[in-house]
Design a binder for these strands. Sequence first.
DNA 1: GCGATTTCCTACTATCTGGTAGAAATTCAA
DNA 2: TTGAATTTCTACCAGATAGTAGGAAATCGC
Lengths: 204, 204
Amino acid sequence: MSSEAAQTASPHVRRKRARRRREILHAALATVRDRGYHATTLDDIAERLGIRKASLYHYFADKDAILYACHKESLAELDRMIEFSETCCPTPRDRLAYLIREHVRVMTEELEGSPLAFEVSALSPDRRAEIVAGRDRYEAVLRDLVALGAERGELRPVDPKLAVFGILGAINWIARWYDPEGGTDGAALGDAFADLLIKGLEST
Amino acid sequence: MSSEAAQTASPHVRRKRARRRREILHAALATVRDRGYHATTLDDIAERLGIRKASLYHYFADKDAILYACHKESLAELDRMIEFSETCCPTPRDRLAYLIREHVRVMTEELEGSPLAFEVSALSPDRRAEIVAGRDRYEAVLRDLVALGAERGELRPVDPKLAVFGILGAINWIARWYDPEGGTDGAALGDAFADLLIKGLEST
DNA sequence: GCGATTTCCTACTATCTGGTAGAAATTCAA
DNA sequence: TTGAATTTCTACCAGATAGTAGGAAATCGC
């Protein structure tokens, strides 16, 4: 169905279609997280859904479009986290701790955060630039919080760039080892990482 | 040249051959680190060396053998680090700090540590099991140090498993962002990460 | 200097995978 | 109930890449 036809489809059909797209993205996330983008075939994704790969082209233009939609979703999650943290947390330190926990949550309890750990080199150049820009905005927020925390005296005056790379590394690496059946609760992991990383930065 | 023939080759030819193998592994490390194993072709690796891919088969049985040798080298580095840390550092805290710095070093100043960040799913099953076992040994050493440090009262009693996942994530993620030309010295990065991570664990 | 050995080449094969065309099956909506 | 629309299918194509065969070029070692 073209986007023009989508305009004329009934609400029911549009909802059904949107649900199928989410299912495809979820199957893609799970498979790419498991074995990487290039080693993931369209056959793999389709098989998780019990359909043939040709069917995927009814919902997405190509493989790159699937990957791109996964990345867009993860950026949308980051934007929601940032927006909420602006009102929920009184200090830079608290805001940073909140964002660490939330970032862990989207890496563990849902899969929508997983693309934050994916390489973007597989994306087409325009799309890659857009996704990298979105990640850079999030990273800039984190760096600003580290710097502001140091200004306020609640965090140590460390290099924000290096500190944030360390924080993002600790969290994004979750995609490589975390097993939802592995006995560790996402929220507990978020608390543990917030504890480790915030205490690593705090003034004592 | 088969391994039997290698037994009969002169020392000069054997040294020349060993050097070429190291060059191939280095080219492979650089390319896989840049774009991932599956997106790396034998043509890519050969091109870095100014030869054709068919030549690679003179030194390695297949692509999997190249990847495997890269992983073996990174494990050898870990073993050297562990062995040295047993004599150079008086306390669990110091040993942990030393291993963090060294791990950062092999991720930044050489490329031999890079396979620690590579997915192992691309390896054949037997080889994958061997590499995972080697990584698990290193991980167990780190966990023991966190536990022992807590016993001695110099580190907080956190969950060693989660703490070590956080540490490894922060360090292995370096393969994803670190640029040798990027203005950050490997040793400085090692100090920054040891500082962040050890202070995150220390009793105050 | 030259036969043996090593190293690298060109040309090719086999397989895999992204993607497409057209048709069949299913669902929709009146 | 039925024609239209949607969804999924089978069968296929084109290009990419791992890997191989056999030969050319370079190096070795006596």
